Amino acid sequence: MSAAFNKVLMHPLAKPVLFVLALLPFAWLFYGALTNNLGANPAEYLIRACGDWTLRFLCLTLAITPLRVLTGVSALARFRRMLGLFVYFYVVLHLLSYSWFDMSFDLGDIVKDIIKRPFILVGFAGFLLLTPLALTSFNLAVKAMGAKRWQMLHKLVYVIAGLGLLHFFWMRSGKNDFAEVAIYAVILAVLLGWRVVEVLKKKRRLPLSFGR
């Protein structure tokens, strides 16, 4: 079964299809904005929808490795980089929507708002940490940095996931609406917990070393 999935995912059209699918939320939001079909408060809808899609793509990106290991579908690794870049794409849209619709691109007001409101500060910190990951997501960066340093840098994604969830939690806490927060918390806990278990398994398999 895994061989069949690998064959499908290795098809030259697999990446273009994923690219188009990942752009569909943006296309829908863009169409909704053009047709004034985003509800009573379209600005708030755009800001929150872009933030939601950032979290969704982050979960999808983090799910690639566990799915690859558990299913044996190694071709899934081909799509991790693209999904990671779409995380950055949607977080940039999230930040731009906030800067435009809430703050009218007033840099001074944006800085004051980031400092004043902890949930925005946490979200902005996540964006700042995500930026070097997006900039170094290409093969040339891996070669320039070396695989070990590159891997260490990209482990920041776990910190980013925590900041993203905290940002979402604080944002929803004002309305005491935690249902979606709980769903993302469970998903991320499972994805990150699986990694912790795998690290512990590897440590147990290491031979004992004396004299250190």
Rank of each mutant, 00 (worst) to 15 (best):
N6S: 11
N36T: 11
L55N: 06
L200E: 03
L166F: 09
L107E: 01
L70T: 08
I187D: 07
V190Q: 09
I120Q: 00
L62K: 05
V91K: 09
V181E: 05
A4W: 13
W150E: 05
A14Q: 02
A63I: 05
L9Y: 02
G174Y: 13
H167E: 12
K148D: 15
L24P: 01
V159T: 04
R68D: 06
M145H: 05
S104G: 02
F79S: 06
K15V: 13
P42M: 11
V181M: 12
P16T: 02
F105Q: 01
L163V: 10
Y88Q: 03
G211E: 04
G174T: 11
S104W: 00
A43S: 15
G162C: 05
N139F: 01
T61S: 12
L58A: 14
L156M: 11
L128Y: 02
D106C: 00
M152E: 13
L29G: 05
F26S: 14
K15L: 03
L60I: 15
H11L: 07
I187Y: 09
K7P: 12
R205Y: 10
K201V: 14
N37A: 08
L133M: 09
T35Y: 13
L130F: 07
D52K: 15
W170N: 03
L55S: 08
M103S: 00
N176M: 13
R81S: 10
H11K: 13
L163H: 09
F57E: 03
L93P: 04
V111A: 00
E198Y: 12
K202D: 10
R81I: 06
S2K: 09
K175D: 09
S209I: 12
K201T: 03
F119W: 05
N36E: 10
P66T: 15
S74V: 09
N36I: 06
W194R: 07
S209L: 14
A161K: 09
P66K: 06
P16N: 04
F26E: 02
C50T: 15
L18R: 07
V186C: 15
R81E: 10
V111K: 00
D106M: 00
C59E: 07
K155F: 09
E198K: 05
H167G: 04
V199R: 14
H154I: 08
F138N: 07
A27N: 05
